[in-house]
């Protein structure tokens, strides 16, 4: 029930946005994330964007995983 999925904001009108999830467009409320901008990814939960995804952090986490994979590679 606490499921939230990353959705990309396509358009914003007031507190309402059109967001895209895997090619499907749906409406989302930005009442809880008024700072969200077109192009941002937000975590969408029951029709509301509950947070703006930090894409820089996402990349850094993935880089860390790649580094761990490199370091633990069997010799």
């Amino acid at each position: 029930m606490c499921l939230a999925i990353p959705a990309r904001i396509n358009t914003i009108e007031g507190t309402e946005a059109d967001v895209e999830i895997g090619g499907i467009i749906q409406k989302a409320s930005l009442m809880l994330t008024p700072g969200a901008r077109v192009g941002d990814y937000v975590l969408l939960h029951t029709g509301y964007a509950i947070s703006i995804v930090n894409e820089i952090e996402a990349e850094q986490t993935l880089a860390l995983f790649a580094e761990i994979a490199r370091l633990t590679e069997p010799e």
Partner: peptide
């Protein structure tokens, strides 16, 4: 799906698992 599939890449699993085992 962006921000989902990247966090499912199976080739990154063994590294994390061996680090878990190490600690």
């Amino acid at each position: 799906m962006k921000l989902v599939s990247e966090f499912r890449q199976s080739e990154l699993v063994p590294g994390l698992v061996s680090s878990i085992r190490h600690h």
